[in-house]
Design a binder for these strands. Structure first.
Lengths: 139, 139
DNA sequence: AGCAAAATCAGGAATCATTACTATTTTAAT
DNA sequence: ATTAAAATAGTAATGATTCCTGATTTTGCT
């Protein structure tokens, strides 16, 4: 049951910490493989899940059908561009009061919430005049 | 391009409107099939997607890996029980101000947000003393 | 250093939700 | 009634993720 050290896990964690976007498992795999050519996609998934369960990283489900991962576990929110699909950190004041608002008149116990904002990111707003075409979209 | 009438789509819509929980495509399929034994799962998916794109129903992605559908398109929020997986409507006051809070200092355009609350529902809280076992959980 | 048990791995197969394909049937306008 | 467009049933394909297995690595112990 004890956790053992693993070079693969270290590489995955190091890669994630070096990125401020929020890579998918496949992106992690593609990149870690540059230094660690034999790593398997299953290993990437297993370690991402393990790290997420330990609370060392966060798994983000932003509605595009693919899980994203974030090494920044401090409480913060995300914006998802419906044009290019990029997931961007938001720096904003605390909105935890929404849990109290939601809990008023509800008979269960509210333990947390998941929120993401969507719209058009700054880059896509600027490019909107050109013929730029995206390949990712929220469903 | 014009939409044509379809008995199958009617049944799907009618079933969804008769439920206040938030069924998955498979649950819709199982139930509509009682009255319409030949309907195929593909037809259910195609119509749910069509209805969602037309704005007649909502597709909910609550993080359990399966899409849920809601015939109530009025703005409201959902609670997901981490114990039994049930998705419950919340009646709560408007929290749209969170979009203004999120938009302050962000250079993109925020068009909307998705929020769901999670925790233990009222039923599971009561049952927690007994040995009740769930089969669904958020990842 | 040497050993053994437990953890991890690579590679590939399996799963599961969802979508795509195709030949046939249904709808609705002429 | 005719006909073209839309929808269907059934099935195959896709894609993300998980599971399985035999080989390798880590770590505590001697």
């Amino acid at each position: 049951m004890a956790l053992k050290h693993s070079a693969q896990r270290d590489k995955i964690m190091a890669f994630l910490m070096g990125r401020k976007d929020h890579p998918t498992a496949d992106v992690v795999y593609m990149n870690v493989r540059k230094e660690y050519p034999n790593i398997s996609l299953g290993t990437v998934y297993r370690n991402l899940t393990l790290l997420a369960n330990m609370g060392e990283i966060m798994r983000l489900r932003v509605g595009d059908g693919v899980d994203h991962f974030d090494a920044d576990t401090s409480p913060h929110y995300h914006f998802v561009c419906t044009e290019c699909g990029s997931v961007i950190d938001l720096e904003m004041e605390n909105i935890d009061t929404i849990q109290d608002i939601a809990g008023a008149g509800f008979d269960g116990k509210i333990a947390g919430h998941v929120t993401y904002f969507y719209g058009i990111c700054g880059d896509c707003s600027k490019e909107s005049a050109s013929g730029q075409k995206p390949e990712t979209a929220l469903q």
